[in-house]
Simulated assay, not measured.
Amino acid sequence: MTTSNREPMPELPNAEHVPAEELVRRQGAQPIDSVAAMARPDLFETDEELDEFLAEIYAARRADV
């Protein structure tokens, strides 16, 4: 036998549902033509800075293991 003491979910504010397609239209988003369009070669100034960033990401992913 199971019981539940859960309270009902609170009502969300009256926000209109907007389909994703409409949000894209409103924001003027355009499709990405290629992966190269997303490249940011100047994101890290040095290879060492990139290595430090990657080390922090790997450590964070392993922190809960």
Rank of each mutant, 00 (worst) to 15 (best):
M1I: 06
M1C: 09
T2D: 12
T2F: 10
T2I: 02
T3P: 00
T3I: 04
S4K: 07
N5E: 06
E7D: 12
M9D: 04
E11W: 11
E11V: 12
E11R: 14
N14T: 04
N14H: 01
N14G: 02
A15S: 01
H17V: 14
H17K: 14
V18H: 05
P19C: 10
P19H: 09
A20Q: 08
A20P: 04
E21T: 13
E21A: 15
V24S: 06
V24Y: 11
R25Q: 11
R25A: 11
R25S: 03
G28A: 03
A29T: 11
A29F: 15
Q30K: 12
Q30N: 06
Q30T: 15
I32Y: 10
I32E: 01
I32G: 05
D33M: 10
S34F: 03
V35C: 09
A36C: 10
A39F: 07
P41N: 03
D42Q: 14
L43S: 03
T46V: 12
T46I: 09
D47T: 05
D47Q: 08
E49Q: 14
L50A: 15
L50C: 03
E52R: 08
F53W: 05
A55W: 01
E56Y: 07
E56N: 15
Y58T: 14
R61K: 12
R61Y: 13
R62V: 06
V65K: 12
V65C: 00
